[in-house]
Amino acid sequence: MYNFDFARPDTLQDAQAALRADDAQALGGGQTLIPTLKQRLAAPAILVSLTAIPELKGICLADDGRLCIGGATTHATVAREAAAHYPALAQLAGNIGDPAVRNRGTIGGSLANNDPSACYPAAVLASGATVITDRQEVAADDYFQGMFATALGEGEIITEVRFPVPQAANYQKFVQPASRFALVGVFVARFAHGVRVAVTGASEGGVFRWHKAEAALGDDFRAEALGDLAVEADGMIGDLHGTPEYRAHLVRVLTGRAVTAAA
C-alpha cells in the first residue's frame, strides 16, 4: 500500500481536527479499508483511527427505550452486549464476517462504507434507526443513498446509532459462498405502529425497504400474508453468484423465513 501518516486520537475533538487535513481518511476497524489500501485503490495522506476514542464505544439503553450503540463499537461487542436488548440485532452482528473480523469491524465503519452486501444497513433501515454523527442526526430512510453512498459529508464521523427496539424482529442472511457477505439479507422488524422490511445484498441501489411486504405484514404478521408478493428482478444485482431473478426470489423466501422466525 501507499504510505500515510497515522493518527490515533483519543477524543472526538482531536479526531475531527485530524480529519480536517487534506486527504485525511477515518479508519474504523479497517476490515474493509485495509484490504482496499493493500490493492492501492486508495491513497490517503493520513489515516485517523477512531478506535481509541472511549466516547465512541459502547452500548446502552436510552431513557426512551432506544438502544444506543457507539460508532466505534465492534460487531463482537454488539453480538455480546445487545443480545439481552435486541436479539435479532445481536444475532446479525454475530454473523458478520468471521470472529476475528468481528473483533475489529465496527458498526460505524460498516455504515459509513455502506457496502451493498453488508448486513448492518438492513438492520438500521428496518429498525428505523437514527444515525448520529458529529454534525447531524439522520433518519435511516435518509441515510442510505445507494451503493457506497450515504448522507455523510467529508470527514464526518458516525458517533452513535440509535435503534428503536421492535416487538419482534429477525434477520435472514443467505451468504455469498466466497465472501460470506450477504448474497441477500432480509431484516424484518415489527413495531406497534407497523412492520419494516429491509433488504441488503440484492439491489443495485443498495439496501432498500420492501414496502409492499411491509403493508401486507402490517395487517397480518405471518409468512403466508406475503401471498404471491414478489420484488421485481429488474434492478437486482446479477453476478457470478446469482442472477437478478434468483436474488428477487431469495428476497421473497428470506422475508417469509424472517417473519416465521420472528413471530
Binding site: P177, H241, H249
Partner: peptide, 8 residues
Amino acid sequence: LTPSRVWA
C-alpha cells in the same frame, strides 16, 4: 452446483 444454478 451453486444454489443459484440448482434453483434455476
